[in-house]
Design a protein around this nucleic acid. Structure first.
Lengths: 119, 119
DNA sequence: TTGCGTTATATTTTCAAAAATACAACGCAA
DNA sequence: TTGCGTTGTATTTTTGAAAATATAACGCAA
C-alpha cells in the first residue's frame, strides 16, 4: 500500500462508527460527545454552545435519542431556579459507557490497520 | 445495550473507513466502487452513469486519486475508436485489492461488535 | 409581578457539496 | 471531412443540512 502513495504526503486511516434505526441515526461519536457535555453542564444549551452547535440541532439530536430509546436518555425541565436544565439519566449514562467502549475498540482496530498500512 | 433500545425498532451497527491525506480524502468505499466500475466499463463516464453520479464528480475523484498516488491509478485517453476511455493501472488494481481486503476486515469487526450489541 | 435562563418549536437564511449544463479537444471510422 | 463518444474544464443551478432568528412557555427568585 505504502508504495502506491506519494511519499511526500502524510496519509492516515480514519473512520466512523454508528448505530442506526430504520429511518434515523441513533448513536454516533457526535451524539456521544453531546451527551457527555450535557452531563457536564446540566444543560442542552450550554452543551450546544460548548460544541459550537446551534441549540436547535442539539435539541433535535436529544429528541432523536429519546424517541428511539426505551427509556429517556436525557430528561429535561423548563423554568425554575436556573431557568431549567437537562440531566443524563442512568440509561443515558449506560449508553455513554458502552458506546465509549465500542469507540475504544474501534480505535484499536484503526491502529492495527494503520500498522498493516505501513508495510 | 439492547435493553436501552426500543424493542419494536431494528437497529444495526454501521461504519465508514477511509484514508486521507493532509487536505484531501484519498480512498474510501465510494472511490473503491468507482475504480471497480471503471475497470468494468473502461470508461469514467460509463462508470459515473452506472453509479448515478455526475461525470464531473467522477472525474474529480479520479483526478484526486491520481494526484495523491505515486503512479497514476487510472490512465485515460481522449479520442479514438470508442471516443476515448480509461484503464485502471496495475497500481490501481493493487489499491482495489488491498482496500477491499481492509473493508472485509472492517466488516468482520462490525459483525463482531454487532454480536456484542445483542447481549 | 417582573426578569431571567432555560426548553420547545417554527420559520427563514446561509452555505457547501453535488448536479446540471455547456463546450472545446481529441482521434478514430465511415 | 464529418460524426461520434470520450476526456477535460468552467460555469451555473439545485439541493439538503445546518445555522440563524424569532417567539412562546415555564417556574423560580428578587
Amino acid at each position: 500500500m505504502k508504495d502506491l502513495l506519494r511519499p511526500d504526503l502524510p496519509f492516515r486511516l480514519n473512520g466512523r462508527l454508528w448505530m442506526e434505526g430504520p429511518d434515523d441515526r441513533f448513536m454516533g461519536i457526535g451524539r456521544l460527545e453531546l451527551l457527555e457535555k450535557i452531563q457536564e453542564f446540566g444543560s442542552i444549551s450550554k452543551a450546544a454552545q460548548a460544541m459550537q452547535m446551534s441549540y436547535k440541532r442539539a435539541w433535535d439530536l436529544v429528541n432523536s435519542l429519546n424517541q428511539q430509546a426505551r427509556q429517556p436518555l436525557v430528561s429535561t425541565q423548563t423554568g425554575g431556579r436556573r431557568g431549567g436544565g437537562a440531566v443524563v439519566t442512568a440509561e443515558g449514562q449506560q449508553l455513554i459507557m458502552e458506546f465509549r467502549a465500542m469507540q475504544a475498540r474501534f480505535q484499536a482496530f484503526l491502529e492495527a490497520e494503520t500498522q498493516r498500512l505501513a508495510e
